[in-house]
Amino acid sequence: MGNLLEIKDLTYRKNQKTILNNVNLTLGPGKIVALLGENGAGKTTLMRIIDSMAKNYHGTVMVAGEDNEVERKKHISFTDNLSGFSENTKVEQISKFYEVIYQDFDVNEFEQLRGFMKIDSEIRLSEMSKGMREKLVIALTFSRKVDLYLLDEPFSGIDAMARKKIINSIILWKAKESTILVSDHFVNEISSMLDEVVIIRDHTVYEHLSADDIRAKNQSIEEYYEGLYQEEEE
């Protein structure tokens, strides 16, 4: 199989400001890739462009060989903010919505993940903490059987213990050929599962390295990432 994600010469400007400039990125299947960068570097924008949420960009974005926006969306599961649901909506209703709308949604998988995350199906969104919501979003995202998972800071509100448990289990939830692109600030916690690291800096892909290459230099991914910014400060 060829590349799962191919981004060529991607430039995105909004409000006379360049958010992404000449981004080129290629990801293969079956990888877990960290998307790292400072706040406002353009990580979320890049994910939104991949999933056809952001408009008016220049360049090519192909997912599983498809550049058509609708076809691309079929191959992607993106961590949603659940803004489409009223606060009164129960978890059970959200699962039902996913089941009706997404043909690739696996209800049994969702039930298993819901059990793992200890989320009651009768609970309403208004009754959930930030961490619980994020657990629900992760469960919904991984219950879809797709080629590419885009996880945009999925663990920020989840407590340390649960976060560890989820990160360790992620590898079990995805199909062998599926790729995960995850942006997160807890670099050390996700580093053990990573295959590749993509760093966004100065509005473009600054580095795209294999995690093993970084580890081979006797450096942890966190040390390497922090090192990039220390160099700049010095």
Binding site: V70, K73, K74, F78, D80, G84
Partner: peptide, 12 residues
């Protein structure tokens, strides 16, 4: 402008 719904695989 609802992101949850705009994620659906349907043309704009």
């Amino acid at each position: 402008v609802n992101q949850s719904l705009r994620l659906l695989p349907i043309s704009d």
